[in-house]
Amino acid sequence: MKYAFFPGCTIADRLPFIEKSIRLVCPEYDIGLVGLPFTCCPEPNSVQSFSQYTWLTMAARNIAVAEEHDLDILTACAGCFESLAMAKHMLDTSADTRAHVNRALANIGREYTGQARVVHLLQVLHDDVGCKGIEERTLRQLRMRVVTHSGCHLLRPERVLQVDLAEAPAKLDALVRALGMESVDYMDKTMCCGAGIRGVNRDISFAVLREKFAGMSMVHPDAAVVFCPTCFISFEAGQRVVNRMFGTEYRLPVFYYTELLAVAMGLEGTESILSGHRVQGTEETVARAMGHGGTPAQAPMGTHGAREV
């Protein structure tokens, strides 16, 4: 299956090692990635709040670009998925809205027709490839206790997106288990990471993130697994800020799912991926999970509580 690949600004420009892992993994499952001149999705909270019309039209443009190539869009970011899927929902359920947006698009010689589907990588891996298919292709089991966080924008609004259960998401957990990891339930699993208001009010944003970390740390995981680059940055870079602001000592490695998938599949080049991470001990955590480096998985936030960065 070939898709118009929509890496999103955050992955492409700030987390290229995540893109690398996606590009390593996808061909293995015959998922073809085609690059097209996409703009920002655009970002679902700030841009939509600034001007919903602008947000909707830019999203429609991106979908129209994929339509011109007869391709469905594959997103790797929950935010991009939310923006494109919600815009598509609005455009597909109101002829009035579609006509209005198409009048704007006519200025750049494009048209939204509603042909292209919008999917997230989680759906392709879980629903199409399937956990069994994933498990069959792994070379090694990763022995790790992890907490998962699918990201608000993959889950809600549940009735429109229909990706997973919004109150009790299970797909990312199933994918994680397919790699041999244990997925631990934790308090506030469906809670937001706070990224949506980081620019508007930093203090509140990190206070939200602290709550999220409090819930995760209670179950002493080895790492957190996410499927959204914004949540990734929020957790990875954010935990240092939380530690500074609130005197906490969190040190939790964070992974985007396909990074661990690539490791479990034994693909070439995973070292370059992991070296991009900022939380100390990330590479060691993976090594331990692979059975290297002596003692089996030690919980960084675990039994002895959080350690210093």
Binding site: F17, G35, P37, S51, Y53, T54, M58, A104, G269
Partner: peptide, 27 residues
Amino acid sequence: RRRELGLPELPEVDAAEVQKLLEVTGA
């Protein structure tokens, strides 16, 4: 970093298109 990782170059976005859309949608 993208080059080091062996990632393809990102397709260029036509800035004029974006400019136009922002203009006609009131942004």
